[in-house]
């Protein structure tokens, strides 16, 4: 198993994919965090002066800025995990992979672990961007950057955990939908269109909101505990978002279900 893990590490490290995605993550998260920090910093006073404007309590501004890592960046570890599997299918490297390690379950297990760790690394990289740009801008605009607050660092830890889980889900998705184009289109369509629509749609009534909070993106936001998407949508009413650990368990369950289905169906297929 150690050998299988090492092989997966070498696989990831010897292609450009991981650092290209990491760079885009830095750029995207850094930009969004800076924008939000600047916006809230500058507009905070005006917003609170207007009772009709969406309200954002000042103590939630910093978490919202820092949680952009997951709020807008979770798709990067998800895609990395998916591509880690589908690129092997596309380039037919499953042949040498399974020749070197014929116990296919171990290969999948090693991928899940290595990509999980890489997802966590993406979380750290994303935090460097969101904290590194967000905190100084908040400070400069006179908003509390909350860097001394232990809750901020607990949030950072949960961000890292969420990013790890998303990468693991990606591996599961890739093992289930092995065609690279189909897998990426599915991931983008679900995360960028289907789920946002569902989340918005389900938030209308209480009974649907009770179901909608179990959507993976909502669970991810619950796990992290802050998100630009949940801060404004008045999830008032009686339905509360999931607890952070419940959100984590939902993501873990999604990862387990797709991985097991992928293993049982596609992963054990003939390699021709």
């Amino acid at each position: 198993m150690i050998a299988a893990l090492r092989s997966e590490v070498v696989k990831l490290a010897t292609t450009r994919l991981w650092w290209v995605l990491a760079l885009i993550l830095i750029g995207y998260v850094g930009f969004t965090a800076a924008l939000l920090a600047g916006l809230f910093g500058a507009l905070g006073d005006q917003l609170s002066a207007q009772p009709n404007a969406p309200q954002l309590p000042p103590e939630t501004i910093a978490p919202v800025v820092y949680s952009t890592v997951t709020a807008v960046g979770y798709v990067f570890p998800l895609i990395l995990g998916t591509l880690a599997v589908t690129s092997e299918v596309r380039y037919q490297t499953l042949t040498p992979t399974f020749l070197a390690q014929p116990r296919r379950g171990r290969v999948l297990g090693a991928k899940l672990i290595v990509l999980g760790v890489t997802g966590a690394l993406f979380g750290v990289i994303g935090l460097v961007a969101s904290l590194g740009l967000g905190a100084p801008i908040l400070a400069a605009t006179g908003t509390d950057a909350r860097l001394a607050d232990s809750e901020t660092w607990a949030l950072a830890g949960r961000v890292v955990l969420a990013m790890a889980l998303w990468a693991i889900i990606g591996v599961g998705v890739g093992s289930l939908i092995q065609n690279q184009v189909a897998a990426i289109v599915s991931v983008l369509a679900f995360t960028q269109f289907v789920e946002p629509v569902l989340r918005f749609g389900t938030s209308i009534w209480d009974w649907t909101a009770a179901v909608g909070r179990f959507l993976p993106g909502a669970a991810s936001d619950a796990l992290v505990g802050a998100s630009i998407f949940t801060s404004f949508s008045g999830v008032g009413g009686t339905v509360r978002p999931l607890e952070w650990w419940q959100g984590g368990l939902v993501l873990l369950a999604v990862a387990a279900v797709v991985s097991v289905i992928g293993y049982v169906t596609a992963w054990r297929r003939d390699i021709t």
């Binding site: 092989s7 010897t14 490297t93 042949t95 992979t97």
Partner: peptide, 27 residues
């Protein structure tokens, strides 16, 4: 058992040395 099958099973982005390193690590 050493195997070379007809399909060229390489990730085009890897160098030959790194391609072999992946499977040397696995084995």
């Amino acid at each position: 058992v050493g195997t070379a099958l007809e399909a060229s099973s390489f990730n085009p982005g890897r160098t030959a040395r790194r391609h072999l390193a992946v499977y040397a690590a696995a084995a």
